[in-house]
C-alpha cells in the first residue's frame, strides 16, 4: 500500500519494517546501502542516512508498524533516491502543515519533500544525483 510514486522507479528497491528503536539503525544502514548503490558521495550518503533515520523515528512514535521503502527514481535524465512511507495517521491533515513540519526537521538533508495521496497519504523524500545522467540504453 503506497501512494503512486511521483517518478518512475529503478533499482535498487529496498524496504525496512519499522516497529522498534533497533529498526531506526537498520533504516539508517539501509539508506546508506541504497545511496552507495546509486553512487552518492559519502557526504550525501550521510545526509540520506540521517534523513531516513529521522523519518523512522517519526513513524515509530505512532506505535504502529510502518514500512519505509527506498528506491531509485528517474526524472528525465536525472537519477535519484526516493525514501517513502505510508502514513495513514496523517489522513485529513493539511499537506502544507505536514510539509512545514518535515522541512523544519529534515529539509536541509534532502533535495525535495513531497506529501501525496488522499487515501494512502505518503511522505516522499528525494535526493538527486548531481552530474549523473540516466541513459536507458545502459540499463
Amino acid at each position: 500500500m503506497t501512494a503512486r510514486s511521483p517518478y518512475p522507479t529503478r533499482p535498487p528497491i529496498l524496504s525496512v519494517k519499522v516497529e522498534d528503536t533497533m529498526d531506526i539503525m537498520i533504516a539508517r544502514d539501509t539508506a546508506r546501502r541504497a545511496a552507495t548503490l546509486l553512487g552518492f558521495t559519502s557526504a550525501r550518503r550521510a545526509q540520506l542516512a540521517s534523513a531516513t533515520a529521522a523519518l523512522a523515528e517519526l513513524v515509530l512514535k505512532t506505535g504502529d508498524l510502518h514500512e519505509i521503502r527506498l528506491n531509485g527514481v528517474i526524472d528525465g535524465v536525472k537519477i535519484g533516491l526516493q525514501i517513502s512511507v505510508v502514513t495513514p495517521w496523517l489522513t485529513g491533515v493539511s499537506a502544507n502543515n505536514v510539509l512545514v513540519a518535515l522541512r523544519s526537521k529534515i529539509g536541509e538533508l534532502v533535495d525535495d519533500i513531497l506529501f501525496l495521496g488522499d487515501e494512502d497519504p505518503t511522505i516522499f523524500l528525494l535526493m538527486w544525483l548531481h552530474d549523473v545522467h540516466y541513459d536507458e540504453n545502459e540499463v
Partner: peptide, 11 residues
C-alpha cells in the same frame, strides 16, 4: 549524536 542537525553541522 547523529540527528539531522548534528549531521548538517558535521558536513
Amino acid at each position: 549524536k547523529a540527528g539531522p542537525q548534528a549531521t548538517i553541522s558535521g558536513l
